[in-house]
Design a protein around this nucleic acid. Structure first.
Lengths: 153, 153
DNA sequence: AGCAATTATATTGTGTGCAATATAATTGCT
DNA sequence: AGCAATTATATTGCACACAATATAATTGCT
């Protein structure tokens, strides 16, 4: 009762036939790759993404950050509180609408940008830019499909 | 002291220039997509991946599962214990080498395969198979690069 | 045989992610 | 104006993921 179960040609449950799995594996591997590079900056990978968004424009509401990063308050609230504890961001209620919380950078948060400038290059290492561009576009299309209302069915 | 920070053309820290981010977003979105489909089976997404591997061949050691899924014992041990509690797998010390733990399926675990057969189709929904094939190959190449010793520098 | 180095798994601590729920502020409808 | 519905964020509970460390079994060297 052990061993191979189905013909390899048409089994829909073979791991190597899943689209999702390489994506899952690549994300885990990328996290492991970023970890050591971001640790000296005192950032985790999702925290780094938040900083990228804030370096582009600040302040932003929690909701706006979530819309950009596809994360909800259940993930962002504790993450932003940790970043506040670390002295990178400030969280202030929006006076115009007390439901909203504005996330702005501290001086330390702004200054960290200079230290982060080397990160993309360090991560990219010796990889071919063309392959990366192609991959980025492919995955971006997938994200657009998945994020569409109804999950792109 | 707020607002845009650098020229859009050559800023390496723009979120939309990162390869990593679409990958990260796609994985989160895929997890959310799989969740409702797998919940009736009593599985999480990583647990589903473990089942895919075991349905191909069992029993396997914890290490072999980890090599296939790019996960270590810190992730797999508690996950497998939960699956044991759920009655899907059995964990037994290998008599040949007492360091190893063999993961085998219970009858319930084997029977679950029939219920899982519809999952890939349900997830794929109306998406074009060609686009998915292309994407799978692209991401698979990235995984191969990232998993290579030295991180493919 | 004896013991250091290696290997396989487990444990601990921290940080995500997300569903479900809660709370407070605002909007919209009458 | 008053109140139901909506919106924005926070909280709770559960399940990963991983670095660092611990423990026990095996291997390899002499």
């Amino acid at each position: 009762m052990t061993g191979k179960v189905a013909a390899p040609g048409d089994d829909p449950l073979l791991l190597d036939r899943q689209v999702c799995f390489p994506l899952y594996a690549a994300t885990n591997l990328l996290n492991r790759l970023y970890g050591p590079v971001l640790r000296p900056l005192g950032l985790t990978y999702p925290q780094y993404l938040v900083m990228l968004v804030l370096w582009e424009e600040e302040p932003q509401t929690v909701g706006a950050l979530g819309a950009r990063l596809y994360l909800d308050s259940g993930t962002l609230t504790p993450l932003l509180k940790r970043m506040e504890q670390a002295g990178l961001v400030r969280r202030t209620r929006d006076a115009e609408d007390e439901r909203r919380v504005l996330i702005g950078l501290t001086e330390r948060g702004r200054a960290l940008r200079a230290d982060a400038l080397h990160v993309p290059e360090t991560i990219a290492g010796g990889r071919s830019p063309e392959g990366l561009d192609q991959l980025r576009e492919g995955v971006r299309k997938l994200v657009a499909m998945l994020a569409a209302p109804g999950g792109a069915g």
